[in-house]
Design a binder for these strands. Sequence first.
RNA 1: CGGGGUGUGGCGCAGCUGGCAGCGCGCUUCGUUUGGGACGAAGAGGUCGCCGGUUCAAAUCCGGCCACCCCGACCA
Length: 478
Amino acid sequence: MAQALTNPKDDFSGWYNEIVYRADLAGQSPVRGCIIVKPYGYEIWEGLKAALDKRFKATGHQNAYFPLFIPEDYLKREAQHVEGFSPELAVVTIGGGKELEERLIVRPTSETIIGEAFSEWIQSYRDLPLLINQWANVVRWEMRTRPFLRTMEFLWQEGHTAHATEADAEAETLQMLDVYADVVINEAAIPVIKGLKSDSERFAGALRTYTIEAMMGDKRALQSGTSHNLGQNFAKAFNIQYLDEGNQRQFCWTTSWGMSWRVIGGIIMTHGDEKGLRLPPRLAPIQVVIVPIYKTPEEQSAVMAAADRLKQALVGADIRVKLDAREETPGFKFNDWEMRGVPLRLEIGPRDVQNNTVVAARRDIPGREGKSFLSQDNIAAQVAALLTHLQANMLAQAAAFRDANIHDVRSYDELKQVIEAGGFARGWWKEDSEAEARIKAETQASHRCYPLEQPGGEGVNFLTGERADRVALFAKAY
RNA sequence: CGGGGUGUGGCGCAGCUGGCAGCGCGCUUCGUUUGGGACGAAGAGGUCGCCGGUUCAAAUCCGGCCACCCCGACCA
């Protein structure tokens, strides 16, 4: 018997790394801080990408591509921006064997170079809004690597838009936050809380940063997407101006928003269990695996013929299916596909061929509970229905777990207890960067956001005793 | 960048009181197996991280270098 997976309850990060490796999502790279994403992992990214891109297009955005290299002085034009990113920049100083006169930054994000382009593209209010997205890799020099969660180079998309008014920019920022929430909730089956970042957690150079926060299986928070209202900070730094209807020069209001392959890490840590990965059907590269079971050659040909018919029926219904014809025992295959997170397994053996049945085993419900007999007739409709239920159930499971681990706190002691036990602490909070820093230093918990959904009314700041008109979430985070 | 650790077949490791480089998993072939991680037999695969030194002889002892991992400070 092969080595069992580390139990997430014993060693969550060890478990995480093992899944990444054993489910064949990614491999180690010869370069420190980078990973090699293998086909199975990349297909999950492609699914996320497709889900996002469809929604970007539906909301009027177009894709474009900007350079990997950014002149160093661009970064410096927005004071907070450069301050925020300086420590993690990769800088090219030599090119073509010669020291460069103008050093180049490997983009950590593209506000600056896109801002420069926008300043040329935008002349008139008729050019607005300008709605651009780019799919790209970015580099942020990291001391520590965790596959998909923190790597030196990572894949993401970054949207960049320019608007005539602050209200338009704010509407765009919130619209894209909704798009992110929609994708993560309905495609990745991860419940999220939409919220506003505190001053100290805000993006370098932004007026306001919005976030979607998810709770992982170890009760830590994962920021899964961010959307920034950049105000006129970058418009002023890069001279992004337009002539309004009254022939007056005006600065644009810009936004940016990004989501990375970090969401793959979120899927692993939200849904994975002691048997391995669990993928939501909508993003699973393989939604259904068919495992044939036989002893004799006669049985094999009968079973394989039936399995092939099942496969064709599913393919015809646009279900992503794999028939596992490898020379391994069924038991091995069961474990193997469970490790890889395939949502639904169909087992078909001689008895099923005889009875016109097939055994369906759901990845979201362990053991016999998750198994049922299906008729081979009309298999595609039955499987499609099961996958729909599975998707909904995974979201429900994750939401139940999260809701059970969010606790209201009225005092600092209560917050400490919640953080100690694991979970999100929710309490009345008046914006206070110093107090946040103190909490972080003492408990490792950071201000995650002011949820957009607020209880209303007023309360007393659990730390300082001041009056506060909104609640905030605190948690340990990735 | 501070503290700790490890470098030996694809992966995980043993060997380290010098003496022909081993084990488990994986891989190849054949046979028996197959409804929850099968078994047997026969094979393939390694300049022991790099450079230098000691010695008749170095994976092993000594010196230097490099790389990676873990724990802390920073982060989509």
